[in-house]
Computed example of a mutant assay.
Amino acid sequence: MSATEATDRVPVDVAVGVLFDAQGRFLLCSRPEGKVYAGHWEFPGGKLEAGETVEQALRRELIEEIGITIGPAQPWRVHVMDYPHARVRLHFCKVRAWTGGFEMREGQQMAWSRLPVEVAPVLPGTLPVLDWLAEEAAGD
């Protein structure tokens, strides 16, 4: 596929939650079996449905996928990733509060992480976030 073909694809909007616990760790989840990149680690979230805002989609997806109801979602960064199967526009939001217990409803795994992450492989769309977190940590 040429670079022109890749950029001609309309991106799919995806809401992504970067959840932080009280110890400053962030949550990564493995992609479930049957999905593209199954077993790769990523931040939780999913596609926006028609008429949804990023925060509405994130709230819905996290209830569906991991069983929690998030508090405020702070919009953080937007990043476009070109995967062989799709072009995605990732809307990353920081989340520091939620209710409910974690329930991996799609058979995925979860891990609270710090930098450098100890889980692998990491989804390519997750790598820029790890770089941004490292930049923020260096600026503290």
Rank of each mutant, 00 (worst) to 15 (best):
A15F: 07
A111W: 03
D131E: 12
P75E: 07
A137M: 11
V129C: 03
V80W: 00
W112C: 03
E33C: 09
G100R: 13
W98D: 08
P116N: 03
C29W: 00
V78F: 00
R87Q: 08
E33N: 12
L48C: 01
M104R: 08
L90C: 08
L19P: 07
P75W: 01
R87L: 10
I68G: 09
V117K: 04
S30M: 12
Y83W: 11
V14K: 03
P32H: 09
V117W: 02
P128M: 06
T53L: 04
D82S: 06
L28E: 09
G45E: 12
D8W: 01
L28S: 03
V129Q: 00
A73P: 14
A120L: 08
K94W: 01
W41A: 13
D140K: 12
G51K: 04
R25T: 04
Q108N: 13
V16E: 13
Q109P: 01
A38D: 15
V88G: 00
D13C: 00
A38P: 09
V14A: 01
R31D: 07
P128K: 03
P124D: 09
A50V: 09
V95M: 08
P32R: 15
H85T: 05
P75Q: 06
V95C: 04
Y37T: 05
G100I: 12
L62T: 06
R105E: 03
M81F: 08
R59N: 11
M1G: 10
R105D: 02
G71W: 05
E103S: 11
H79D: 14
R114Q: 13
A38S: 15
F43C: 13
K35H: 12
V117L: 06
L58I: 05
H79R: 06
L19I: 09
G139F: 06
Y37W: 15
A73T: 11
L58G: 03
P75I: 03
V54K: 05
D13E: 14
E103W: 00
T99M: 13
V129A: 02
G71C: 07
L19D: 10
E118M: 14
I70G: 05
I63W: 11
E49F: 00
G46L: 11
V119D: 14
T69V: 14
L19E: 10
G125S: 12
P116C: 05
A120N: 12
K35L: 13
D131A: 10
A111D: 08
E61I: 01
V54E: 03
W41N: 09
F20T: 08
